[in-house]
Nucleic acid binder design. Structure first.
Lengths: 349, 349
DNA sequence: TTGTAGGCGTTATCAA
DNA sequence: TTGATAACGCCTACAA
């Protein structure tokens, strides 16, 4: 029999003082390490006596399993990679919050990395995540193609927010942007507006196209003409909205309302209107999209379409947990809702 | 001689297909694993020949070291724990962005966890971080006492933003809130205002007290009386600002200006004033603190004190890197600056 | 039900 | 300068 006592001759990492290992728990409880492991993971049944002995040892020693070692041995790191675009974005920030809360419930931890809407960065971020051996991947929008994502993710399960994807270990989750935009436009039409301008989002974001489609759909349904001159691009930022509204005003076309592709755009537009002495809603009505905090406190408070973003993050994480259990994710997103406030005026006829 | 060939008899984690290990690189290059490791870490000199052979093998095999294994063996995970309060906060979001960018430069990854301004949650988050064996800790404000932080951090280096702390492996980093607040108040005084109300921040945040002190300081310096009735608490949110301004108005005390403890408070206050038909800046001037995006696009654009938050995060991460190198962190924060916009009116005399 | 004995992919020590 | 080898702390296949 060779020597099996835990000699420490040479080693690498100096064990941090006060670190309690599973082996120490086993010794204290008078059982083998495997038994402790089994109890920790619920891998097999163990007798009541040992169960209690181990529990007691864990308590008294204050043992906490080392996730790093677990990751190496078990192949699970209990961490989920989250590829987001800008960690400081007011929109995605809420989603991250939801993800964090749901993962926490399950003992997982999110690892956030930003792609900044740039393919190269996204690819790099994805690599970093995979190198960290995350157990799953949640992707928030982005520019990477579905193929690139699939390839980059290897064989870990993936939840993608903002695009349609289905597969055995993949789940897509999105809001119905088209319906939301139609709802916003319809609201303006219901208030008597017929000349409605549209300030779009980033031209190469899918949701920007869907919102434009929703706008046209509502116009069509009401039998109103679609005037391309009333449509101008934005970039989902306040500055973009400001610029866009200036173009609209400079064109000297008549319009009584503006539907902006998101709240930030609408808020920028509102400032642009203010600068030109066009009053909201007296002269021009304004509707946004998202319902972030600034919309609620804008002057006047902004009518918008509410996207439950926190909930979206929460559900994305829930879907991931399902995928990890080998189930097919079956989560549903709450639908979008119009939030009427004070930036829209009912036209007299 | 015992058998040293890499037999795989029984194991645990099934090695994921396509995973390239350091050992495979060593074989391909015809050297020992230790040599590969040395090259990877620059731990020792190796001959040109082997150097190149290994580099080639790494390239062709597409090898990427496994951080999890590194963490176990080397005791370093190349990750930094970041204890923040609300990941979706517009203020801290910017800081996280800065941290992320600086850490990325150094090959480190941030692990963000939220404490939600609650001691119990912060403690839990701290534990989770330490269990993950992060190499360092960056703490953004919070309620945990310095002692609790020190204890929770064990012996990993720590950078704390928003409080004064010094130590061999600890570094504190803060803005001069007092000076910033004095600057804001002074600006109002310079514009001829004498009756200046103050809407405070969360009563138990240190920076809220500092800002109040700055407000008083400016008043004193100008020989203006301090009227406690003109001071009312807020909570750093828009809703808090709205409520506060209502209290101020209800008290029916005369004032010509308001200094709010942060932008969100100011924006809420602006809405409150609007609701009561008090115009900004014609009837009341308004100054905020932070200079977040919404301030720039408020109507009218908000005069405020700019805190370079991104930079703050960046510097905090830089300090951490210095600490990790065993140096004493010696980073400096850019100072606060007044950003005059349109929410302040110069009083005629 | 329980224990034994690798092995996960790296780093670090020792000896050459 | 290089290579063998023993950890790092845990999990699990296998044997008992």
């Amino acid at each position: 029999m060779s020597n099996t006592s835990p000699r420490r001759v040479r080693g690498s990492a100096t064990p941090a003082a006060g670190v309690v290992t599973l082996e120490m728990v086993a010794q204290a409880a008078g059982v083998s390490p495997s038994t402790v492991s089994r109890i920790l993971n619920g891998t097999a049944r163990v007798s009541q006596v040992k169960q209690q002995a181990v529990d007691a040892a864990i308590q008294s020693l204050g043992f906490r399993p080392n996730p790093v070692a677990r990751g190496l041995a078990g192949g699970r790191t209990l961490s989920i990679g989250v590829l987001t675009q800008t960690i400081s974005s007011p929109f995605y920030g809420e989603a991250l919050h939801g993800i964090e809360d749901r993962l926490d419930e399950a003992g997982y931890i999110p690892i956030f990395v930003s792609g900044h809407w740039q393919e190269a960065e996204e690819r790099k971020a994805l690599d970093a995540l995979m190198a960290r051996r995350v157990d799953g991947l949640i992707v928030l929008a982005g520019r990477l193609s579905n193929r690139a994502l699939q390839a980059g993710a290897g064989n870990v399960p993936m939840v993608v927010v903002g695009r349609q994807m289905q597969g055995p270990r993949v789940h897509g989750l999105c809001f119905d942007n088209r319906a939301g935009a139609a709802m916003a436009t319809q609201h303006l039409i219901d208030c008597g507006h017929a000349r409605i301008a549209y300030i779009g989002g980033e031209p190469d974001h899918a949701d920007a196209h869907e919102r434009l489609a929703g706008y046209r759909e509502a116009l069509d349904r009401a039998g109103l003409p679609f005037d391309p001159a009333l449509v101008t691009p934005g970039d989902y930022t306040e500055a973009g909205g400001l610029l866009a509204v200036n173009r609209l005003l400079d064109a000297r076309l008549p319009f009584t309302a503006i539907f902006a592709a998101n709240d930030q755009t609408a808020i920028g537009a509102a400032l642009g209107l203010y600068r030109r002495n066009v009053r909201v809603p007296d002269d021009v009505s304004l509707v946004g999209f998202d319902d972030l905090a600034p919309a609620r406190f804008a002057i006047p408070p902004l009518t918008t379409v509410r996207q439950p973003v926190y909930e979206m993050g929460f559900q994305a994480a829930a879907a991931m947990m399902a995928l990890l259990r080998g189930e097919t994710a079956q989560v549903s997103l709450p639908s979008l809702q119009l939030v009427p406030r004070e930036s829209v005026r009912r036209l007299q006829r």
